[in-house]
Design a protein around this nucleic acid. Structure first.
Lengths: 229, 229
DNA sequence: ATTACTAGTAAGCGAGTAT
DNA sequence: TATACTCGCTTACTAGTAA
């Protein structure tokens, strides 16, 4: 059900994983290219080359000492590993839901504008069974959970088609049935967008009222990956 | 913590993982080499070659149909994936134990001097519940595992306070409950010291006798990061 | 000790194609 | 449709070695 693969070369991901096992996500680790090479059953030269490649692609940073080097995995590198981890998880732990903890934030009012478009609201009703309250509730998720969004986007979800209205185009949107503080609704992800740390939630309710939410309140969200409605 | 790597070629493990994501652990999946190749962003020929290699190494079985093929991951293949999954787990899930393999070395006799100090032995008894045998067993760990010690030192462990005796100061020591070859004891890390490749182990037993250890013998050590005693 | 360049060799890739 | 072979091309590897 998960589509696609990390586009990182497998052997580089392997070395990145090895560095992570040595603690290079949390700390800079002091290690030579030869030692790493031994872990991977390869030559010092290959170890060195891998490190250069990882450095070049920005998944590690290095501080070269006169003898050894201090290596740390960057955020980008950690995300690649998280990605792969999530894939393995979904093999062995049939996850069909993903949960988040986040806090309520104010959007810029666009949510109301978009959900008011008949092109969207009609499809929300048809495909999600939700007569959406105008506006979205925006929830800022923890930074570390951004990779979960990446994973979610690899699932098909429920596609809301793009449409034309008022002389402009409204883009396709990927939806997933979800619960916020145990109340039903759906998560709306713009099909073509960069990863964001904001989840937009739609519901038949005025969530701020129903759940008595104000900015910075903590909420829990569960997203269902393989649910029809 | 698991260190080391599957000795499977990374690109083959990657394809095996892809098959697992398609459900090939539980069922035989019907899929063509071209479809698999697309998943991996590679050519049909490479897809076919990978499948041949996986088949040859016994990580998958194939039933060739006239059109497509039915592929299932074997037990051996599943083990390879589980292995890799465990490695990723130990990166991202708070592990509460760390393991080492090392070899017994002779200290310079200071262990005996220190453990004989009432200030230490009293605290060992109180805080660790260990009536320590005089002396420490010194275990030299692999150089590459020095990074693990760095990780361990970030945990609180059990603090043995510094004290004064015989007109000198004995420094604070950080302890962690541990097992050596499955025998209980504790690891003693000088709170303020440089990273060393020697672990000092205390126990109520004379370990060299009890475990029949001599210099250069290999031992396995498991350190518990979040254990009271 | 290190890192990492060069260059020759080995392994991997994929277009073309037979089956 | 498939799979998978050949073979020329590209990528990856490592011995040797400089820095």
């Amino acid at each position: 059900m998960i589509i696609g693969s990390s586009n990182m070369k497998p052997y580089l991901l392997q070395m990145l994983k090895e560095l992570a096992l040595l603690g290079a996500i949390e700390n800079r680790v002091e290690i030579s290219s030869l030692e790493l090479a031994k872990q991977l059953n390869t030559s010092q030269q290959t170890g060195s080359r891998y490190l250069l490649e990882l450095d070049k692609q920005g998944t590690i940073t290095r501080e070269m000492g006169i003898k050894k080097q201090l290596i740390q995995i960057t955020e980008k590198g950690e995300e690649a590993l998280q990605d792969e981890y999530m894939r393995y998880r979904s093999i062995f732990e049939l996850t069909d839901q993903v949960s988040f903890v986040g806090k309520v934030v104010s959007g810029m009012g666009e949510g109301r504008y978009y959900t008011a478009q008949g092109g969207y609201s009609k499809q929300f009703k048809e495909k999600l069974g939700i007569l959406a309250f105008p506006g979205t509730l925006n929830v800022e998720i923890r930074h570390i959970d951004k990779n979960k969004i990446r994973l979610i986007k690899k699932h098909a979800g429920i596609l809301i088609d793009s449409f034309e209205s008022n002389n402009r185009t409204f883009g396709a949107v990927q939806c997933f049935p979800a619960k916020i503080n145990n109340l039903d609704g759906a998560i709306v992800l713009p099909a073509r967008s960069h990863y964001s740390n904001i989840l937009e939630f739609i519901s038949k309710y005025n969530l701020r009222e129903k759940l008595k939410l104000k900015d910075d309140d903590e909420v829990s969200i569960i997203i269902f990956l393989n649910k029809d409605k």
